[in-house]
Design a protein around this nucleic acid. Structure first.
Length: 237
DNA sequence: TTATTCGGAAATTAAAAACA
DNA sequence: GTTTTTAATTTCCGAATAAT
């Protein structure tokens, strides 16, 4: 590139063409434009703290170490004598009764008004036996994953994933729960006979993925929920 | 063929951080 | 204090497109 001139005129700047810097400049003359230099240049250079990169690196490393701790913790939870981590059944210790209780409490206190997709009494009843019913287990796990994403939701006092209330621990807990829900859900044919629970689960998966900005997955599960509603003739009066 | 538009690479600049 | 690093802005190259 030839040496850039100190300042391009307004028209050349707009047209993204080389300006000779005089008034009127050659481009403006040939285009019969009035050649002005009215634009006020912006201040160049970084604004505010420029420690953005180092902050990002710190955050990435923190998340990585946190995730590693969670992996270890989960490996410990799932490494029972009769437990194979690759099975499609619920992982013991992953979705604790206390976690479910807290998440249901939060959901019905703060979110039910804008998302009335569940009946409290029914869910609480079903949740007691969720280990025996994958449909319910997935619903409850997805619900917990969704609730853990919400601002204001705190980790239960027992801290089931041993995250020490560190910043970002909610997001990691949510991710783990989402993975758990997906793993169990992929282990059985929930589409064979969709239920209200599986529709709500799809909707909660949509909400979870939307919350973590995985928009393609989010829309997929929203669409899935909508399709299952059709399968159950819920679009009819 | 010539003129125009515009995505984006390269250059420029200045603030913040690092260093002596 | 000076130097280095980083990030924001500006210039304008050159490919794509439109006009003649």
């Amino acid at each position: 590139m030839s040496a850039a001139i100190k300042r391009a005129c307004d028209a050349c700047h707009r047209r993204k063409v080389k300006c000779d810097g005089i008034n009127p400049c050659r481009n403006c003359s040939t285009a019969q434009l009035s050649c002005t230099y009215n634009a006020i240049p912006q201040k160049k250079g970084p604004k505010g703290s420029r420690a953005k990169v180092i902050s990002e690196l710190r955050e990435t490393q923190r998340q990585t170490s946190l995730a590693a701790r969670v992996q270890n913790r989960v490996a410990g939870l799932t490494a029972g004598p009769s437990q194979n981590p690759t099975t499609a059944g619920p992982s013991p210790g992953m979705v604790t009764g206390e976690l479910v209780k807290e998440c249901l409490e939060f959901f019905f206190a703060h979110m039910y008004s804008t998302m009335p997709i569940l009946v409290r009494q029914k869910v609480e009843q079903q949740a007691m036996f969720m280990e025996q019913n994958r449909d319910v287990y997935c619903l409850v796990t997805a619900l917990c994953a969704f609730v853990m994403l919400q601002p204001g939701m705190t980790m239960p006092p027992s801290d089931p994933y041993n995250l020490d209330m560190m910043p970002g621990s909610n997001l990691i807990a949510s991710t783990l729960l989402l993975e758990e829900a997906m793993r169990v859900r992929n282990g059985y044919e929930y589409l064979d006979s969709p239920t209200l629970n599986s529709i709500a689960t799809s909707y909660l998966l949509f909400a979870c993925y939307y919350g973590v900005e995985s928009h393609n997955k989010a829309w997929f599960y929203l669409r899935e929920a909508s399709t299952m509603m059709h399968m159950l003739d819920m679009h009819k009066e």
